[in-house]
Nucleic acid binder design. Structure first.
Lengths: 134, 134
DNA sequence: TGAAGGGATGACGCGAACGTAAACGTAACG
DNA sequence: CGTTACGTTTACGTTCGCGTCATCCCTTCA
């Protein structure tokens, strides 16, 4: 299993990001690595958060949206109101992802149809050339 | 059915974008409205393209990527090489969307699990308060 | 001891995707 | 004939998400 604590460079290698990016996320309060003197040290918690950050980006969420959602995945025994608000936010997030999934399915189906059409056209072109040459 | 030809404002209302955005897309060669004197007039073709543009954005593609893909949906009887290149591009696009779909499924499942956990915590809190008050 | 390597901290830069303001055209309405 | 509404062009401004120096600070190792 991987080390419980990693340097910034190890993080960069594992997640394929630059040091600049990690420091940037920290400045934006999405990550909170511990310090050993000056140096940043990333724990498993940081790795989980970074994974979620990159996933969020992939789905088109802004860093600010992601920041708010991150608490979702580290819900501790906080106040009920806090927990409740987080839950509501999660519901919206879920709804958004589900609708995005539906749209994605549509888009995939449409694209496939277009590609079938294109393939048919290519086949037609090949046949024409084939007969012309023979 | 909606008018075959629309002004810039009608387009904005229908697709919830600003005039600036439509002109910007035109400058980037994603849209090609006809002109009546100075005024832009948008045909059904433009509406189809705009819909695809917005969809592409939703899935995290850049305007430049989208521009290249748009030809897919209006493949005419162009050169074979052109058609073939477009087809290859489409395959990549499709692969990307499919992997995005898979990731999205994972993310949805994880989020649901987290929400179940949160809901259990909330229930627990309510019960405590309930017994305390009774 | 000094030179190299890894990390930290500003600070400025940059491309994408528009926002916004200024200045102009023109068509219709009272 | 003025003004109101809608559209156009030009151009500079803005936010996001980092990239890219320049400079500094330890640590280590020959």
């Amino acid at each position: 299993m991987t080390e419980p604590i990693m340097t910034i460079r190890e993080m960069c290698d594992e997640f394929d990001v630059t040091p600049r990016t990690l420091r940037f996320y920290e400045a934006k309060e999405l990550l909170f690595p511990q310090r050993e003197g000056q140096k940043r040290l990333y724990s498993k918690r940081d790795r989980v958060r970074l994974k979620l950050i990159l996933r969020g980006k992939r789905f088109g969420f802004s860093l600010e949206e992601i920041r708010q959602l991150l608490d979702l995945y580290y819900m501790d025994d906080s106040q009920e109101t806090q927990l409740r608000e987080t839950y509501v936010l999660a519901e919206k997030h879920l709804a958004d992802m589900q609708s995005q999934r539906a749209e994605l399915d549509d888009a995939i189906a449409e694209l496939k149809a277009q590609m079938d059409w294109g393939q048919a056209r290519l086949k037609q072109l090949n046949e024409k050339q084939g007969t012309a040459k023979s």
